[in-house]
Amino acid sequence: MNHMSIWKYANPKLFLQTSERVLPALWGLAFACLAIGLVWGFFLTPDAERFQSTVKIIYLHVPSALMAINAWIMMLVASVIWIVRRHHVSALAARAAAPVGAVMTLIALVTGAIWGQPMWGTWWAWDPRLTSFLILFLFYLGYIALWEAIDNPDTAADLTGVLCLVGSVFALLSRYAVNFWNQGLHQGASLSLDEKENVHDVFYFPLLVCIAGFVLLFIALVLYRTGTEIRARRIKALMARERAGA
């Protein structure tokens, strides 16, 4: 195997050693980015013309929505790696990412509702974007529940991996089906805002810092939780060995 290969981190021991060395820096960077981005965004930017001060919730809403989708993609990649190459760290990383992704989805939904109330006059509308995020949240719940329900760790990893693959296809299908469905109900009436066009530079740069903060926070959380999973499995193995010895 190539010396620089990423696959060497499939070794749980090496993974733990490396992640322990990287994690403090990651936590620090993540919180620094979040602190800078949020303070900059909340207090040092002007109110937008159309949105007044409500625009400031984008510093939570946009990054969390972004991470909600990227977390699922990361789980998909990790599941494929587990199914193809049978690296346990990969399966555990997918497991570790799921609750983080679910919480990100929830944050995106809640901040969206808080923003929607003053802007659209309603907490919730069956807009395609909102609806597909709610469906994504359901997919996260099902995935987490399947992990929790199965005792044998390898069986659980295999079955959740298959579910993640099939679920990704259906989540994508649902996204387009929901687009179709809502067009069928209200022709052309779209509540969703196109962020790219509305966001000026003044808001854009703090937003970028916030996004970087969320990405770093996600990586740190996943590394940390994967380490926890590895240790939990080691404890289980040790206890089983002790019981077998006694």
């Binding site: 359901l138 997919f139 099902g142 579910l163 299908l173 089906a177 929901v178």
Partner: peptide, 11 residues
């Protein structure tokens, strides 16, 4: 597990 997968069919 199954109900979210049913969404596109139902729609």
């Amino acid at each position: 597990l199954v109900l979210p997968l049913y969404v596109p069919t139902l729609i």
